[in-house]
C-alpha cells in the first residue's frame, strides 16, 4: 500500500517536471520568431486596422484592475484620458490589483471585435452590472478594441 502511494507521487512528479521543460522550450522558440510593433495607445486607436491581430508592445499606467478574477485591466494613454482594455492571454492567468498605479509594459496581440461581437461584449458587460456609476475606464471597457497580453513587466520609474 505504502509503496503504491509512493509510486503514484513519483509518477506525478515526473510528469510535472517534463511539462515544465516542454513549456520552456516553446517560449524560447516563440521568442526567436516574433515580430513586435511598438506603438502608443493613441496610435493603436487612431488606425486600429493597421494593427489588428498584430503583436504590439505598449506601456502606460494601470488605472484599474477588475476585482472579479483580475480578468482585465486598463492602461492610460499618454494624454492621461484615453484608456485601453488589456485581457490576460498566453501564460498570464490574471492581473493583480497591486498593478494599479504602476507603469506596465505589455506585449500582446491587438484585437478588434466586429460589430456583432462588440454588441455581445457590451450586453455581457452590462448584464453583470459591473459598476454602479460610470468609471473613467467605462469607454475602454465597452470598446471593440483590446490587447490580449502575452507578457508584461513593471517599469514604474
Amino acid at each position: 500500500m505504502q509503496k503504491s502511494i509512493l509510486w503514484v507521487f513519483i509518477a506525478l512528479l515526473a510528469v510535472s517536471c517534463n511539462q515544465t521543460t516542454k513549456k520552456e522550450g516553446l517560449t524560447t522558440e516563440a521568442d526567436k520568431t516574433e515580430k513586435i510593433v511598438t506603438a502608443t495607445i493613441n496610435e493603436l486607436l487612431a488606425s486600429p486596422a493597421d494593427y489588428q491581430d498584430k503583436e504590439v508592445a505598449i506601456s502606460g499606467m494601470v488605472s484599474h484592475v477588475c476585482r472579479h478574477g483580475g480578468q482585465k485591466c486598463f492602461l492610460v494613454a499618454e494624454d492621461g484620458e484615453t484608456q485601453i482594455r488589456i485581457v490576460p492571454g498566453g501564460e498570464i492567468d490574471e492581473f493583480k490589483v497591486e498593478m494599479e498605479g504602476s507603469t506596465i509594459a505589455f506585449k500582446g496581440i491587438f484585437r478588434v471585435l466586429n460589430a456583432e461581437q462588440t454588441e455581445e461584449h457590451v450586453e455581457d458587460h452590462e448584464s453583470k452590472e459591473h459598476h454602479d456609476v460610470e468609471q473613467s475606464h467605462s469607454t475602454a471597457e465597452k470598446a471593440e478594441y483590446f490587447v490580449e497580453a502575452i507578457e508584461f513587466k513593471d517599469i514604474t520609474p
Binding site: M61, S63, E100, S102, Q135, T156
Partner: peptide, 20 residues
C-alpha cells in the same frame, strides 16, 4: 505613494502601495 492621475475633471486618484 506610487502615481496619480485625473479620472475626471473633478477627481484625482492617487495610487498607493496597497490602495488608493
Amino acid at each position: 505613494y506610487k502615481q496619480y492621475y485625473f479620472p475626471s475633471q473633478d477627481h484625482i486618484i492617487i495610487y498607493l502601495k496597497g490602495g488608493h
